[in-house]
Design a protein around this nucleic acid. Structure first.
Length: 767
DNA sequence: CTGTTAACGGGACACAACCC
DNA sequence: GGGTTGTGTCCCGTTAACAG
C-alpha cells in the first residue's frame, strides 16, 4: 500500500519494477478477493464482486477465457521490447511514489469505470484503492457520475463495479448487458436469467424438503427471464441465493435439533433481520430503478442532441456549397445524417452518397417551378384567347384550337418558352393576338392537308368533288376551306384518335374501342383529354400532368365499314358524303346481335344509324365480320324509337350568344334559352343551336327493332323448375338443373372444384 | 467505419394452474 | 367444465455494442 505523508511523513520507496509474469498475474487475481476482504469494505452480499469478477468466471458463453499469452521469452528479449516495457512500468510505478493525499486528489477526478480499471492494474494500487481512506475517492467518483448511494450491504467499490464497470453478464460474460436488476443486484443476460431465476410456484418442486417461508428471507425480482423486461405479479429468486439461504437455514435447524441454548431465538432474530433487509433492498432497488430510467432517458436525449448537431453540421456544409434548404431536406431522413459527431473523414465518406440526392431534389424543384411558370403563362394566354373567342360566332369555336394547342404554335411557344426571369404580361402576347386569325387559319389548313394526305395514302381521291350543298356541316371551317376535291366530306373518311389513354375513346362509355371520328368536323372537334403520366411525378397529381396532343389517324376499318354501308344503300362509296348519309337516315341491323329482352323489356335487336353502326362494329370482337341489313320502309314500322341520347348530353350551345361558352348545356336548356332570350320559338339546327359533333359518334342502341320471341320446341331444359335455377358450366352438353347446394356439391364431387365461381363454374339460367 | 452479434421488444400460441 | 390468467416457447424485426 502506498504510504501517506500523514502516516509516515516520508515517501516510501518505489515498488520493484519486475514485470509481473503469468504466475504473478494469476497470484494477483487470486489475492484480489482477499485484499478486498482485508479492506473490510465489502458488504455481506452472497456473491462478492471479486468472486464473479475473477478470471475463473470471466469467459465468453461456453468458452473458458484464455490466459494472456507471454509476449517474449526471458532467454532472448529484444532491446526494443525491454526499453518499451520498462518505460511503461516506470511511468505507472511513479504514480505510487506520490503522496497519498495528492494521489487521491487525482483519483478523485476519475470516473468510476476508470477507478475500477485502475484498481485491477496492480496489487499496490488495489491495496491503496481498497483502503478505508480511499472510500472518499470512490464516493466522489460515484457522485460525479450521479450514481445512487450503495445499498446497506454493498461497499462503494462493489457498487461501482455493478453500476459502472462494463456491460458484461456477471454469470456468463455475455456482452452488451445494459440493464441491471437492482432487486437481485445483478447484471445478467436473459439466458442466465432464464436458467437461474426460480419462480415461487416452482420452489416446492425444486426444494421439496424446505418450507416455502424461506423465500421471505431472500431478495427477489418481479421481472422473469421470459418477461421481456415487463414486471409480472410473480416473484423470481436467484437460484444461488436460494441455495445459500437453504444452507444457512439448515445450520439454524441443526442447532435447534441439537437443542443448542437459544437456537430458536437466534433463528427468529435472523428471520426478522432478513425480512427487514429485504424491505430495505426493495426500497433501494426502486430508487435505483428510477435513477437508471432517468439515465437511459438522458442517454437517449444526449444521442438525439448529438444526432441533431451532426445533421445541422451536414446541412450547413451543403448550405456553404450553395444548396438551398428546400433541397437539403431531401437528405433529412437519411440514416447517414443521424449518428455521432461529424468528422472530416466521415464527411468525405457520406458526401458522395448524399449530394446526388440533394441535386436530384434541386433539379426536380427547378423543373417543377418552370412547369408552373409555363402553366401560368398558358393560363394568362387563355384569358386573352377566351376573350377573343367570345367575339366570334359560336359555331366558329369548333374550328379553333384549344389553348394548349395554341400554345404549341411556334410564335406563341416562343413567348411562353421565354427565359424564366422574363416577366410575361399582356403586351408579350400582343403580336400573337393580332395574328391569331392568320395563325388559326394556317393551323386549320395544315390539319386539313395532313388529314387529306393521310386519307390519300389509303384510298384514291374522288374524281369529282362532292357537292358542298350536300354537306350539312355546321362548322365555319367548311366555308373557310378551299373548294378542292373535298375528300374529308366523304362518308368513307373515318378517323380515330391514336393517342393512348384518350379519355374520349374510353370504351366504358361507348362499348366501342375504336371510337370513330367522321370527316373533317369529327376530326377537328376532337380534343384529346388524355394526360401524360409517364413521369411518375404526375401519377400523384394528374391535373398537373401535361395534356397529350391529339393524334388523328385514318380508321381503315371504319372507312371499310362505311363503304359497305354506303354500298348497301346503293350509293357510290367514292362520292357519297357524310351529309348525304345523315340526311337519308337509313337504319341497319347487325347480323351478330341476338334478339333478347335487354331493351326496356322489349324483345328485339338494336337498330343502328350508319354512324353508330360503325361504332358498334368492334362490339363483337376486333376481327368479327358483320353483315348488315338495311331496314325496308315496312320494317321501319317495327322500330321502337327512343330519344337520341345526345339530347340529354351537356354538349349544346346557342349560336347567337356566348352564354354557353365553356359551359355546354342540354338541348332542352338551350331551347328554353332561345325562346326566353332570342324569342326564337322554332329554332333550326345548326343555325340557332348546335352540339359538339364528336358527342354523336358512338351513341349506339338508339331504337329497337321489335321481333317475336321464338316458341319453345323440342327438348328444352326444365326452365319451369324455378327451385332449381342453376346449371353446371363444366357439363356443357347437359341440361340438368340444380339448386345452389346441388350445383356446388356437383362441382365439388364430380369436377373436384372446392370453391366454384359463378360465371366460370356455374350459372343461373332461370330468374 | 463496417459487418456481426446478441439483447431487446413485441406478438402469437400452447399449455397448465387456478377460480367460479 | 368453462373461462381466465400466467408461464413457457418460438419467431421476427430493430437496435446497440463490439471486434476487426
Amino acid at each position: 500500500m502506498v504510504a501517506t505523508r500523514r502516516q509516515s511523513g516520508r515517501v516510501s520507496a518505489p515498488v520493484p519494477e519486475d514485470a509481473p509474469d503469468a504466475k504473478d498475474v494469476e497470484d494477483e487475481e487470486s489475492e484480489l478477493s482477499d485484499l478486498e476482504d482485508d479492506a473490510s469494505m465489502a458488504g455481506s452480499a452472497s456473491e462478492s464482486e471479486s468472486d464473479w469478477e475473477s478470471g475463473a468466471h470471466r469467459k465468453v458463453r461456453g468458452k473458458a477465457s484464455a490466459k494472456r499469452a507471454k509476449v517474449s521469452s526471458k532467454s532472448s528479449p529484444s532491446k526494443v521490447q525491454i526499453t518499451k516495457a520498462s518505460r511503461g512500468r516506470r511511468s505507472l510505478s511513479l504514480l505510487l511514489t506520490m503522496p497519498m493525499d495528492i494521489l487521491f486528489e487525482i483519483f478523485g477526478l476519475l470516473p468510476p469505470k476508470d477507478l475500477v480499471s485502475l484498481s485491477r492494474t496492480s496489487k499496490p494500487l488495489r491495496q491503496t484503492l481498497m483502503s478505508r481512506n480511499a472510500i472518499t475517492v470512490w464516493k466522489a467518483a460515484r457522485e460525479s457520475a450521479e450514481g445512487p448511494d450503495p445499498p446497506h450491504d454493498f461497499s462503494e467499490p462493489q457498487w461501482a463495479v455493478l453500476l459502472f464497470a462494463g456491460t458484461n453478464c456477471q454469470v456468463c460474460g455475455a456482452k452488451g448487458i445494459l440493464n441491471i436488476d437492482f432487486f437481485i443486484r445483478r447484471r445478467v443476460c436473459i439466458a442466465c436469467k432464464k436458467k437461474n431465476l426460480v419462480v415461487t410456484s416452482k420452489f416446492p418442486r425444486l426444494y421439496p424438503d424446505y418450507d416455502r417461508a424461506i423465500l421471505d428471507l431472500i431478495q427477489y425480482t418481479n421481472v422473469g427471464g421470459w418477461g421481456h423486461g415487463i414486471a409480472s405479479k410473480s416473484k423470481f429468486y436467484w437460484q444461488s441465493d436460494i441455495d445459500d439461504m437453504v444452507k444457512e437455514w439448515g445450520v439454524f435447524q441443526k442447532s435447534i435439533h441439537m437443542r443448542a441454548p437459544g437456537a430458536k431465538q437466534k433463528l427468529e432474530e435472523f428471520r426478522e433481520e432478513r425480512i427487514k433487509a429485504i424491505q430495505l433492498i426493495v426500497q433501494h432497488a426502486e430508487t435505483c430503478q428510477k435513477w437508471y430510467d432517468n439515465l437511459s432517458r438522458k442517454r437517449l436525449t444526449d444521442n438525439q442532441e448529438t444526432s441533431k448537431k451532426r445533421a445541422e453540421a451536414i446541412f450547413s456544409r451543403f448550405r456553404e456549397m450553395g444548396y438551398l434548404d428546400a433541397d437539403i431536406q431531401a437528405i433529412a431522413y437519411e440514416s447517414q445524417v443521424s449518428g455521432g459527431e461529424l468528422t472530416e473523414r466521415g464527411w468525405v465518406r457520406i458526401r458522395p452518397t448524399l449530394e446526388p440526392k440533394i441535386q436530384e431534389r434541386r433539379d426536380r424543384r427547378v423543373a417543377e417551378e418552370r412547369r408552373r411558370l409555363v402553366k401560368d403563362r398558358v393560363q394568362f394566354l387563355k384569358v386573352l384567347y377566351t376573350a377573343h373567342l367570345k367575339t366570334l360566332v359560336p359555331s366558329q369555336w369548333l374550328s379553333y384550337p384549344t389553348v394548349e394547342e395554341l400554345a404549341d404554335m411556334v410564335p406563341v411557344k416562343q413567348v411562353i418558352d421565354a427565359a424564366s426571369d422574363i416577366i410575361i404580361h399582356g403586351e408579350s402576347f400582343k403580336e400573337v393576338m393580332v395574328s391569331l386569325p392568320t395563325l388559326v387559319s394556317a393551323w386549320n389548313e395544315n390539319r386539313r392537308a395532313l388529314l387529306t394526305e393521310k386519307l390519300a395514302a389509303v384510298k384514291p381521291l374522288p374524281e369529282v368533288p362532292p357537292s358542298h350543298t350536300d354537306n350539312l356541316s355546321v362548322t365555319a371551317s367548311s366555308s373557310a376551306s378551299p373548294a378542292t376535291s373535298d375528300i374529308l366530306a366523304l362518308a368513307t373518311s373515318v378517323f380515330q384518335c391514336g393517342t393512348a389513354k384518350c379519355e374520349v375513346n374510353n370504351p366504358q362509355w361507348t362499348k366501342c374501342q375504336d371510337n370513330p371520328l367522321f370527316g373533317w368536323d369529327g376530326a377537328i372537334s376532337h380534343h384529346c383529354m388524355a394526360r401524360d403520366t409517364t413521369n411518375s411525378y404526375f401519377s400523384f397529381s394528374l391535373r398537373l400532368a401535361p395534356v397529350v396532343p391529339s393524334v388523328i389517324e385514318v380508321s381503315s376499318k371504319g372507312s371499310a365499314l362505311a363503304a359497305d354501308l354506303v354500298t348497301l344503300v346503293k350509293l357510290d362509296p367514292t362520292r357519297a358524303t357524310i351529309a348525304t348519309m345523315d340526311q337519308r337516315g337509313d337504319l341497319f341491323l347487325c347480323s351478330e346481335c341476338v334478339p333478347d329482352k335487354q331493351h326496356d323489356g322489349l324483345y328485339g335487336r338494336p337498330v343502328f344509324t350508319w354512324r353508330s353502326a360503325i361504332a358498334h362494329a368492334t362490339a363483337h370482337g376486333q376481327d368479327k365480320i358483320i353483315s348488315w341489313h338495311v331496314l325496308t320502309p315496312s320494317e321501319v314500322a317495327n322500330v321502337k324509337r327512343s330519344q337520341d341520347p345526345v339530347h340529354r348530353d351537356y354538349c349544346w350551345t346557342c349560336n347567337h350568344c356566348t352564354i354557353h361558352f365553356d359551359a355546354w348545356k342540354t338541348k332542352a336548356t338551350v331551347l328554353e334559352h332561345l325562346v326566353a332570350v332570342h324569342k326564337i320559338v322554332q329554332p333550326t339546327e345548326p343555325s340557332d343551336l348546335f352540339f359538339i359533333p364528336e358527342k354523336r359518334r358512338s351513341r349506339a342502341l338508339l331504337p329497337i327493332f321489335i321481333e317475336r320471341p321464338p316458341q319453345p320446341s323440342g327438348r328444352q331444359p326444365n326452365l319451369n323448375a324455378s327451385s332449381k335455377p342453376f346449371r353446371c358450366k363444366r357439363c356443357p352438353k347437359s341440361n340438368r338443373l340444380f339448386d345452389i347446394g346441388g350445383v356446388q356439391a356437383h362441382l365439388r364431387d364430380k369436377h373436384k372444384i372446392a370453391s366454384p365461381m359463378q360465371g366460370q363454374d356455374w350459372d343461373r339460367v332461370v330468374d
